[in-house]
């Protein structure tokens, strides 16, 4: 069951579209439920599809197409680090290696305590601040250095 809070937020998104276009809110609905539950299980996707009166498979198409949706658990903090060209030119490799060593995980792995998951991201459209990463799809951290990463991780504990 979608929580009343989630429904309220989805209903707000629905006000943006014509009444007969409920499916349009699926991008937001998936985000809202993912934020609330940490990731999107098939049950979550089913609930969203039913609420928006759209085929489940169409909701799944969307959830699997956009890579900020997580279809498996990602731990408490999902750290997505961009490795694309502008970040690569500014040594994102160093940050990636540091994170991998520090958290002892590879990309798409969750730390045993369920706290962190490391993901490789594509361009986030903030290349001026390279190298950069974001946490749980929302908090952007730019101009990363090893020290700055340590400080951020410290704060997340």
């Amino acid at each position: 069951m979608l929580s009343p809070q989630a429904i309220e937020k989805i209903d707000y998104e629905l006000t943006k579209y014509p009444a007969d276009q409920r499916q349009a809110a699926v991008m937001s609905a998936l985000r809202i439920v993912q934020t609330e539950r940490g990731w999107l299980s098939k049950e979550s996707i089913t609930e969203i599809a039913q609420y928006l009166r759209m085929p489940e498979i169409a909701a799944m198409e969307v959830a699997s197409f956009y890579n900020m949706y997580d279809l498996s658990p990602v731990g408490k903090y999902k750290i997505t680090i961009c490795t694309n060209i502008s970040c690569m030119l500014r040594d994102s490799d160093v940050i990636v290696n540091h994170l991998k060593t520090k958290l002892s995980v590879g990309f798409n792995e969750v730390t045993p305590d369920g706290k962190f998951c490391l993901k490789e991201g594509e361009c986030m459209g903030c290349c001026g601040g390279a190298p950069l990463m974001h946490v749980n799809n929302t908090e952007m951290h730019e101009f990363l250095t090893v020290e700055k990463v340590d400080a951020i991780l410290e704060e997340l504990k």
Binding site: P55, I57, A58, M60, E61, S64, F65
Partner: peptide
């Protein structure tokens, strides 16, 4: 819609 193309 019973089939879809998932992933990309």
């Amino acid at each position: 819609m019973e089939l879809g193309m998932v992933g990309r």
